[in-house]
């Protein structure tokens, strides 16, 4: 280390140029990327900017966006939550199956409770027992999936009389011409942005993510902050599961499959630092939006559905590479 510092860097000039580009990209790159993607698809497909399609994209990203808020907080505090996809399936199945037994409101409360319990469980293992979040939530991904299968027996669950309940309004309804899930997402984005930027808890999320030891040595209970972050993630994922269930008025075990990847892809595209301590909920949402637009755009252009995975793959690998490379000061080699 010391040696590397001592050897004067011959590529220093190049490095500062790279840094400058990296800095500019960091500042405005996301917005630029967003407009490039929008411009590209609106030229390539005349349907892309039609109000109907715009609403469709927004509705689609509202579920991922809701989960992404929790993911942003978890990654900012220095961890990962890979369980969100399975938890979406579980909470959707729970709310649908409970609906006909206990009615819509209690069913939703039960689903939220399931999300909170799952989050608290992960939060306890990661925050208090100091287990690796990547592995723990990877385990939860499989474990929750198994619970869904045991619970449903792999069967399709649906609300028997969808026309006799207002429950579908949450996922399908409109308010002032805007889909309700989009409004819910907007409100949640606002609330959690305020929490992250204006409250003691929010500030402590950044400090624990930035340096857990220094936070501890400043009197902050890092374990409590980590625990709370996972509980929030569980809560928001449950909300996403409810919206999902309400939109379909039915649920099945694989509903949320792969969501963890899409959400993480969007969030890191939105500039949330993988090493913790840096993140912005609105930017993360724009990252999710870009992922959603790519998905929608490729379908409009007639690409097969699996093409979206190619795009996500390129995004994830590319963004992480750029992130690390700019920190190391060189993009190649």
């Amino acid at each position: 280390m010391q040696q590397a510092e001592l050897m004067a860097n011959p590529a220093e000039q190049r490095t500062t140029l790279m840094r400058r580009i990296a800095k500019a990209t960091e500042k405005h790159g996301l917005i630029v990327a967003f407009f490039i993607v929008v411009a590209f698809f609106s030229i390539a497909s005349e349907n892309f900017l039609s109000p109907k399609n715009v609403m469709l994209v927004l509705r689609q990203v509202s579920i991922l966006g809701t989960i992404a808020i929790g993911m942003t907080i978890v990654i900012t505090v220095g961890h990962f939550d890979l369980s969100v996809g399975s938890l979406t399936s579980l909470t959707a199945v729970v709310v649908i199956s409970m609906h006909d037994i206990v009615g819509p409101v209690p069913a939703m409360l039960i689903a939220i409770l399931v999300g909170l319990i799952s989050g608290a469980f992960i939060g306890y293992l990661v925050g208090y027992l100091r287990l690796n979040s990547l592995i723990i939530t990877l385990g939860m991904l499989v474990g929750l999936q198994a619970i869904v299968l045991i619970y449903t027996g792999g069967k399709y669950t649906r609300i028997v009389a969808p026309d006799e309940t207002w429950f579908g309004f949450i996922g399908r309804g409109f308010l002032f011409g805007v889909p309700l899930p989009v409004i819910i997402l907007g409100v949640l984005l606002l609330i959690f942005s305020v929490i992250l930027l204006k409250t003691v808890f929010g500030r402590q999320v950044f400090s624990v993510g930035g340096n857990p030891t220094a936070s501890k040595f400043s009197g902050i209970s890092d374990r409590k902050i980590i625990f709370t972050a996972f509980v929030i993630s569980g809560f928001l994922t449950a909300i996403a599961g409810i919206i999902m269930g309400s939109r379909l008025m039915a649920a099945q075990n694989y509903l949320g499959q792969g969501y963890e990847f899409e959400v993480i892809a969007g969030v890191i595209l939105g500039g949330v630092s993988l090493s913790g301590g840096e993140g912005n909920i609105f930017k993360a949402f724009i990252g999710i939006l870009i992922i959603g637009i790519l998905k929608n755009g490729f379908l409009l252009l007639g690409f097969p559905y699996y093409f979206q995975w190619v795009a996500q793959w390129v995004i994830v690998v590319g963004v992480v590479w750029l992130d690390v490379a700019t920190k190391r000061g060189k993009v190649l080699g």
């Binding site: 500030r203 950044f206 400090s207 930035g210 340096n211 030891t213 220094a214 936070s215 501890k216 040595f217 400043s218 902050i220 301590g277 840096e278």
Partner: peptide
């Protein structure tokens, strides 16, 4: 390691 959060600002480190 234990004193400051390097990524945070002067203000934030003072009030932490």
């Amino acid at each position: 390691e234990k004193g400051v959060v390097l990524k945070m600002s002067c203000i934030e480190n003072t009030s932490i």
